[in-house]
Design a protein around this nucleic acid. Structure first.
Length: 97
DNA sequence: ACAATGACCGTCG
DNA sequence: GCGACGGCCATTG
């Protein structure tokens, strides 16, 4: 594992209840302003211990291949409000370390 | 080294 | 709001 992934996992694990972070935000925190793809690749491994469902796109859209719907439900279950269109209310739940 | 791909991002029409 | 284009970074054949 690279430090980058470790950092990603660390941050994702630190996301508070009822908050979400975008791939770009995470990549920016780790010093890679445009490496959001790497974050996405890290998410792809998707360890169960990680709340990967709290990681969404910059506009609040849910992304995650087949599990997108499931994650949306999980977020709703955690108290995250959704906007019409199936997007997360980033305006309220956007988290910055 | 090159081209293609990807759980992305921002801008433009 | 949506689709197209370019850019960034890492991985793979």
């Amino acid at each position: 594992m690279n430090d980058f992934f470790e950092q990603v996992y660390a941050i994702v694990g630190k996301i508070p209840y009822g908050k979400v972070v975008s791939y770009g935000e995470i990549s920016w925190m780790l010093g890679r302003p445009r490496s959001a793809r790497e974050v996405g690749r890290a998410m792809r491994f998707c360890p169960e211990k990680l709340p990967c469902h709290r990681v969404v796109r910059a506009d609040g859209s849910i992304t995650g291949d087949s599990h997108a719907e499931v994650r949306k439900i999980l977020l709703e279950n955690e108290g995250i409000t959704f906007l019409p269109g199936g997007r997360v209310d980033m305006k309220t739940h956007r988290w910055s370390g």
